[in-house]
Design a protein around this nucleic acid. Structure first.
Lengths: 155, 155
DNA sequence: TTGACTGCAAACGATTTGCAATTGC
DNA sequence: GCAATTGCAAATCGTTTGCAGTCAA
């Protein structure tokens, strides 16, 4: 995808965001808009703190609690997802398409990947009997190439 | 599996636990043993607090920080796994066999299920290129039958 | 104009830590 | 006996909340 097309898509997502806010009765504030745009432009699963630090250059007075509050609000109206992790800090991402996560056990970075086939596979019977299934997410743990080359296994 | 066989298996796991502690240079204390036994006997993915409350009947003086400390120690030597959740409290389970999780979005209860076939499926190329894969975990979100029958969707 | 939203500071819940007493090896 | 482990209390971290001023609609 070329740059101009990316811009177009970003623009569409931002318009969609405004509509979603309107529908939910939320005011479209400067802070909220920048938080959402930042999540879209740098889709690297930041923590609330990460996000806050990045936003300070554009919004020098934005407070960390606004970031927390906004993420909680966005989560409720389905604009943002809280990612499952074993870390103590929560990570967030803008909702855009079903996907799965690759997590590096060393650097903790989360990478997205698509696995459309997963939905075509038959889940075990015990799962079907358990209840109504909503989403199937795959989380793969491993060591990313970068970490593998940086840190030797035995030192 | 009948009761006597279950007892036998529990016994084996406890013996294995002692060996793992020895190998890791950990002392086999009363508290550690009871924490591990409790995790094995009630494999319901408790939080540290859940676990602490249950242990109080057998060990009236055990402190919550010991439970936390012990779980962290067990995690490091591979006896226990910290489960990925979006909740603020961490959940734990004794490590015994590869499996996946069914999480009810309403009651938050976690159920285990096996899906041995998952390992035979081909992961996407981008995953193979990312690095060295360790474990593949599937997390399915949905509503369990119990919650579905208890709470109506619209009220 | 007005209620929703923000920044501030203070509270909160979950988890971790320093320390002296205790216990397994 | 000695180092590792525990219980206690206090500290810490991430997150949430009450409040008074501010801003989008």
């Amino acid at each position: 995808m070329d740059i101009s097309q990316q811009k177009k898509q970003l623009h569409q997502m931002m318009e969609q965001y405004v509509l979603t806010c309107r529908k939910a009765g939320l005011k479209v504030t400067h802070q909220r808009t920048e938080i959402y745009r930042n999540l879209l432009m740098l889709p690297d699963h930041p923590t609330a703190e990460n996000l806050h630090k990045r936003l300070l250059s554009d919004l020098p007075s934005i407070s960390l609690d606004t970031v927390y509050r906004t993420l909680a609000t966005f989560e409720q109206c389905g604009l943002v997802t809280r990612i499952q992790t074993t870390e103590s800090q929560a990570r967030f991402e803008a909702v855009y398409a079903p996907h799965h996560h690759l997590i590096c056990s060393r650097c903790k970075k989360v990478m997205d990947f698509k696995w459309p086939d997963i939905d075509t596979y038959q889940v075990p019977d015990e799962v079907k009997k358990w209840g109504r299934i909503n989403t199937i997410t795959v989380v793969i743990y491993g060591i990313c190439n970068n970490c593998e080359s940086l840190e030797p296994l035995i030192n």
